[in-house]
Design a protein around this nucleic acid. Sequence first.
DNA 1: AAGTTCATGGTACGGTCGTATCACAAAATA
DNA 2: TATTTTGTGATACGACCGTACCATGAACTT
Lengths: 203, 203
Amino acid sequence: MPKRVDHAERRTEIAEALVRVAGRRGLHAVGMRDVAAEAGVSLRLVQYYFQTKEKLLLFGLEHLAERFGERVSARVQAAGDSPGPRAMVEALLMAALPTDDESRTFHHLYTSYAVLSVNDRALAAQPFIKNPDAAEDALAELLRQAQESALLEPGVDARLEAAGLLAMSAGLGTGILVGQRTPESATAVLEHHLNRIFRTRDA
Amino acid sequence: MPKRVDHAERRTEIAEALVRVAGRRGLHAVGMRDVAAEAGVSLRLVQYYFQTKEKLLLFGLEHLAERFGERVSARVQAAGDSPGPRAMVEALLMAALPTDDESRTFHHLYTSYAVLSVNDRALAAQPFIKNPDAAEDALAELLRQAQESALLEPGVDARLEAAGLLAMSAGLGTGILVGQRTPESATAVLEHHLNRIFRTRDA
DNA sequence: AAGTTCATGGTACGGTCGTATCACAAAATA
DNA sequence: TATTTTGTGATACGACCGTACCATGAACTT
């Protein structure tokens, strides 16, 4: 049976099994045995490709963040041919809201990881600084471009605005996740704020 | 030894032990034995006052939310004699940011509970709808009053603005928690947004 | 062809966790 | 004073969980 196998691919499959089962039952309730069963392999195999649970979790987080980053930038680029910068800004912010199953799982797990990272240096190290800062840079750049095209209201600080919008989107996301808020109302809130940043009817 | 004892008080002491130890090591890592040790009682006693771990967690969340609600409204009222409504709005939003130890622990644990509530109906039921909605009502009311005094920029929707600000504050809070953002930068972001809501120089 | 490496299965071990059980003394009740 | 209730201790049980160990056959190397 043992023909040579692509380790990277295997690890990805297992990591995605982790994400699926954690999305269903919560990250805290996931054990190696669950991941193995979900991936359709034996417990031994999970141990073989990841030696320890911590390494599995770490890889799972990296994989999750990477996949979601791709998803977001795909949507932003898809909105590139629309009316203008505002469409891209909206695409970026809305893609991060937990509206469908994939983004919901992402939000759920990313928040789980964030909570764990408070007490776990290994988890804290990597993606919780790098990843959101990248998003913030991208959004700030979009806003700056809009500003140069005189599409924004005066007095807007692109960097501060980017940070605020991202934080708001994250906060609304958790609101949706815990059932406090509907996706529609979250969208309305974001929309209202964008209306106060972007010039509605121009000069 | 057994003189009659105030159950409510005992339960509160144990719940606060839970909050302390969970604040240090993370909610996921807390067991009944840890809570017992932190409270200085035997495991049996924790079982005696809360029959099950789920009930302990539930009570702990309620207690946490209640205590923090009191803290926030105390700060808001303390700001009541300052310049005007904006001071109260700022007090409300800033009190929710994890700047000191207490608010940091609150943010940490509240987010932990929020994540758990996604897969736990008992946890989801109570405070994740009621509590933030109350804050939103209070903030919306403050904004509406400011609006009637013509202190806000035109075109501001008090309700949407309240929801947005609260979400932003929550999002910034997590940013601080995971070390992505400093309290100062979070304050700056909030301040900038309030400057765009409140009229800076008046009529 | 022989030997080594790789992928995989099965299973056991030590620890911890939530919960249940047994025991007992101090207070309240009668 | 006799009895029931209440608060507390110690400890045991069964279930998991992460990890380690042993085995084994296919594939590659020489």
